[in-house]
Design a protein around this nucleic acid. Structure first.
Length: 931
RNA sequence: GCCCUGGUGGUGGAACUGGUAGACACGCAGGACUUAAAAUCCUGUGGCCCGAAAGGGCCGUGCGGGUUCAACUCCCGCCUGGGGCACCA
């Protein structure tokens, strides 16, 4: 068996016969199997990448054999930060880096034998692709969300309504807009109209809080900020409000929540999305200022808070507003202005992440203002504190220290009163947050349960005009603009008055212009501001920010249906034929990013009538991560290197040592190649290696993330070169359940290699000349192969691929034992195995007299007739402990089984004179005798 | 703090709706073949104990309880690894 020759031969055969080409029209049922496409990083693939790809490939091949027309494509998420960083450092255009990286990925993917239809490959950074990403953005820009019909509708319809009736009849998911009449609308200037419409558009411009780094001239992500400074360079970062393009995803919050019922996704992902959306019901409450005349702005009359626990309103002893609360300055009396100003400045210097991570310290400042409790009219002080988030609710809350732990901590720190409003609950030490108990000290709520009190409080607040019921979401609208170069240009230009306009569809794609350097300008403008002569119709400024990484990935799955279409993102026929993804495989780190955005875009496109379905992926499976298995050795302070097993020897026990990572490639199990180490690190060329008594030098292991710096990255190329792609595929699947994280250890791969050789010998014999017999197989042989077919069919359906592989091993072991060389047994075996080990199976198929590819064969069916057993070895347990076995006919009725067992000679010695009380018989399973 | 996961031999893991715990593989030990090695094949392999052996006993799925004729599986309470979210009012 010459693995490399076989695999090359087979790949050439597939290529010549174009066996993976897929047509968009077929009488067969369709099946769409997709991997989350990769970002083509410079590092290439490591063994973790292919795990999901192999699983989806097995599934796709399985469905193809079952007679489905299968769409199984691959592409690249090729816009992204790393290529841009590299460009900044080297000046090389990201397009070039990206092209090279893709070539590497392609080469690595090719040698693994995937059944992708490469004619459908896509790249999100390709203008022919991002033209449509821009096209979708324009659709978002030209849409608003109608809450009456509960769907997105064209903005032109909205304008017509404004012209007829103003906005009073309109129920939209929108920003803050004053009511206006048709007459008002007609009077408004173009600029005013544009500003109002932006409040309705699903793609809109608005102020958003960002981490601005003046020194770098750019906006940073939360994880690029450490302790208020930029991770790169350590420059100060401040929270600043900036105009940004945003997407109104919040309009879809409820539909995104409900849609989860219609998909077969892991519960953990659904749960993460529910939490991310964070729907909660409560009400707003207005607290009038006690002395408006004292405030800096005497127009200010009240502070509105949002609460999910209106039942606790009588436990409120103070109010807190966010440092970014818009009316903060207005409500602060002049003599507190300085103190408040100082506190706000302090909070602005703390990143969102800092503020959220620091749970222990409690900070805040009294504003000097007081409000009246809406029901009791008691005076409550108003504080400002960073634990209140500006972006959630109204940016102000009522402090109920008795029943909210955060409020409790704050009250303790500022010596504010803590009262209990739940009967029999002492809250001085800790807040009582459970929603159980009976209300007390609460006026009209006394005697009610928490849930009754919530309803009663909302009703009463509404009756008295103090507040309204409100559904609040944690989900925020998505910031869509990036101060980066390597992304899709946003297809917007600004006219002379600064009014944003979308490009006409015919003007797309708006090509990403070349620039001289990939950095922001000196004025802090995004890199695109460097582009010269880049103007709409030669005179209007284009938008300078680009789209985020998730733009292209939000719809790419649709493009695979019709990747070369230049009239539409895909033809309606292609979209209708392929529909939603039947099986989507990828990492669970995308649970609240990609997976929520691509659902959002899909719902939106459904509203436009572009898609016949609402949910993009029917079934989702998260493959686990493959962890690295690092190898560590010890270094003594004098520079000598110590073999791991000797660490605990008395001589070394108390010495200080450092653990050092050494390359996994230099370790065989825990035996380290010392000569290799000397070469790897020149400073160790002459070092002393303290070896074991047997002369070996050993390492210890640690399971951790696979990364270059830990020297534990295993590259699939090396493994494939040694064992072949089939063996690699089998082994990755054999390693354990697909969904589970697991450490990579090359050691076990020999088992899969041996299995393939056994298979080879079984089919091709020792002399490599397949000579299958047409004899009628024995019952035993038939049972083996039919049991295998049943098991594997079930397992692939469940994606339990590790157990499927072991089923193959068992079958091959048993057939080898029987020296079976019968065609009618081995051919179904080859077909079943071909999704796992496509090269070897194809090769053997060709060499056992077939001219057509095994890919085009039919999945075998099992016949229960061959699986019937006449008798069963019943395990007999005495009081639950298995003692011996009895062979009995399977069709024996239960009473007869009990009789047989009681008559059994072997039973007597376990009874020790006792009489059996009861005999439990589970037919075909086991027998339990109770004494 | 909250949510999601996992904890089974030396290792990766298997066990259907509660019904023979440790399938399959790695590793290890012993043996066969060989001048030798590789490759291949065979045997053994959860722990402790009794026995020369055949065979047998006890304990065992993170810990402690419970339900059941029967628990890796179900219930209650803990411990612990991994991941995610996070002052979300």
């Amino acid at each position: 068996m010459k693995v490399r020759e076989i695999e090359q031969y087979v790949r050439k055969f597939w290529e010549e016969h174009q066996v993976y080409r897929v047509q968009n029209h077929d009488a067969k049922p369709k099946c769409y199997v997709l991997d989350m496409f990769p970002y083509p990083s410079g590092a290439g693939l490591h063994v973790g990448h292919p795990l999901g790809y192999i699983a989806s490939d097995i599934f796709a091949r399985f469905r193809r054999l079952q007679g489905y027309n299968v769409l199984h494509p691959m592409g690249y998420d090729s816009f992204g930060l790393p290529a841009e960083q590299y460009a900044i450092q080297t000046g090389q255009h990201p397009a070039i880096t990206t092209r090279n990286n893709i070539a590497t990925f392609r080469r690595q993917l090719d040698q693994l034998g995937f059944s992708y239809d490469w004619s459908r490959e896509i790249r999100t950074s390709d203008p022919s692709f991002y033209r449509w990403t821009q096209w979708f953005f324009i659709r978002l820009f030209e849409s608003w969300y109608n809450r009456k019909t509960n769907r997105a509708e064209p903005i032109s319809e909205l304008i017509r309504q404004f012209e007829l009736n103003g906005n009073q009849q309109v129920d939209a998911w929108c920003g803050k807009v004053p009511l206006f009449t048709a007459a008002d609308w007609k009077r408004y200037s173009e600029k005013q109209k544009s500003d109002i419409l932006l409040q309705y558009r699903l793609a809109y411009l608005d102020e958003a809080w960002v981490n601005w780094c003046p020194a770098l001239g750019t906006v940073l992500a939360n994880d690029e900020v450490k302790d208020g400074r930029s991770e790169r360079g350590g420059h100060p970062v401040e929270r600043r409000r900036m105009k940004q393009w945003m997407l109104r995803i919040t309009a879809y919050a409820d539909r995104l929540l409900e849609g989860l019922k219609d998909v077969q996704w892991p519960e953990s992902v659904c749960e993460a999305q529910r939490n991310w959306i964070g729907r909660s019901r409560g009400c707003t409450l207005r607290f009038p200022l006690a002395n408006p005349a004292a405030a800096s702005d005497m127009q200010l009359r009240e502070i509105e808070v949002f609460t999910t626990r209106p039942d606790t309103v009588f436990g409120a002893t103070f109010l807190v507003v966010a440092p970014e609360y818009p009316a903060l300055q207005s409500l602060t009396p002049p003599d507190f202005a300085d103190a408040v100003q100082q506190y706000v400045a302090y909070a602005a210097g703390r990143s969102e992440r800092d503020r959220m991570a620091d749970v222990h310290s409690v900070t805040g400042q009294f504003t000097g203002a007081y409000v009246r409790h809406p029901f009791t009219h008691a005076l409550l002080p108003v504080y400002v504190s960073e634990y209140v988030l500006a972006g959630y609710g109204t940016g102000a809350l009522m402090g109920v220290p008795g029943h909210d732990q955060r409020d409790h901590r704050f009250a303790r720190a500022f010596h504010l009163p803590i009262v209990s409003i739940i009967e029999g609950r002492d809250v001085q030490e800790a807040a009582y947050e459970e929603r159980e108990g009976t209300l007390t000290q609460s006026d009209f709520l006394n005697g009610l349960s928490v849930s009754e009190a919530i309803e009663a409080a909302i009703a009463e607040a509404e009756r008295r005009g103090l507040g309204e019921e409100r559904i609040q979401y944690r989900l925020r609208d998505a910031v869509f603009g990036r101060q980066r170069y390597w992304g899709e240009p946003i297809p917007i230009y600004y006219d002379g008055q600064g009014i944003p306009h979308a490009l006409a569809d015919d003007d797309l794609p708006l090509i990403l212009p070349d620039i001289d350097a990939y950095l922001p300008t000196a004025e802090g403008e995004p890199p695109l501001a460097r582009a010269t002569d880049w103007k709409y119709k030669g005179k209007y400024e284009y938008e300078k920010t680009t789209m985020p990484g998730w733009a292209g990935s939000s719809w790419y799955y649709l493009r695979f249906a019709d990747p070369h279409n230049d009239q539409a993102f895909a033809s309606p026929e292609a979209i209708c034929y392929w529909g939603a993804i039947d099986l989507y495989i990828g990492g669970d780190e995308h649970a609240t990013g990609h997976l929520i955005y691509f659902r959002f875009w899909t719902h939106f496109l459904h509203d436009l009538g572009l898609l016949p379905f609402r949910e993009p992926a029917l079934r989702l499976v998260n493959q686990g991560k493959i962890q690295g298995r690092s190898c560590l050795i010890y270094r003594l302070d004098d520079g000598r290197l110590l073999s791991a097993r000797r660490r605990s020897e008395p001589e070394f026990q108390n010495l200080h040592t450092v653990q050092l990572h050494v390359p996994v490639s230099l370790c065989d199990g825990d035996v380290v190649d010392v000569a290799g180490l000397r070469q790897w690190r020149p400073e160790w060329a002459e070092a002393t290696f303290l070896t074991e008594p047997d002369g070996t030098f050993r390492c210890t292991h640690l399971v951790e993330k696979m990364s270059k710096s830990k020297f534990n990255v295993v590259n699939p190329d090396d493994i494939v070169a040694q064992y072949g792609a089939d063996c690699f595929r089998l082994y990755e699947m054999f390693l354990g359940p697909l969904e589970q994280d697991k450490p990579w250890d090359t050691k076990g791969i020999d088992g899969c290699y041996r299995f393939l050789r056994k298979l080879w010998r079984l089919v091709a014999g020792d002399d490599d000349r397949p000579n299958l017999s047409d004899e009628i197989p024995s019952d035993a042989e038939l049972r083996i192969v039919h049991r295998l077919i049943r098991k594997v069919t079930h397992d692939i359906e469940q994606l339990s691929l590790n157990t499927a592989v072991s089923a193959f091993m068992i079958a091959v072991n048993e057939l080898t034992e029987l020296r079976c060389n019968k065609r009618s047994v081995l051919e179904p075996l080859l077909i079943c195995l071909s999704p796992f080990a496509p090269h070897v199976c194809e090769y053997l198929w060709q060499h056992t007299g077939h001219h057509q590819s095994i890919v085009l064969e039919q999945w075998p069916a099992w016949d229960d007739r061959y699986l019937k057993e006449e008798t069963f070895d019943y395990p007999v347990a005495i009081n639950g402990r298995t003692r011996f076995k009895v062979t009995l006919a399977l069709d024996l009725p239960e009473e007869r089984i009990a009789e047989e067992v009681l008559a059994e000679e072997g039973l007597r010695r376990y009874l020790e004179g006792r009489t059996p009380k009861k005999v439990i018989v589970v037919k075909g399973r086991m027998i339990n005798v109770v004494v």
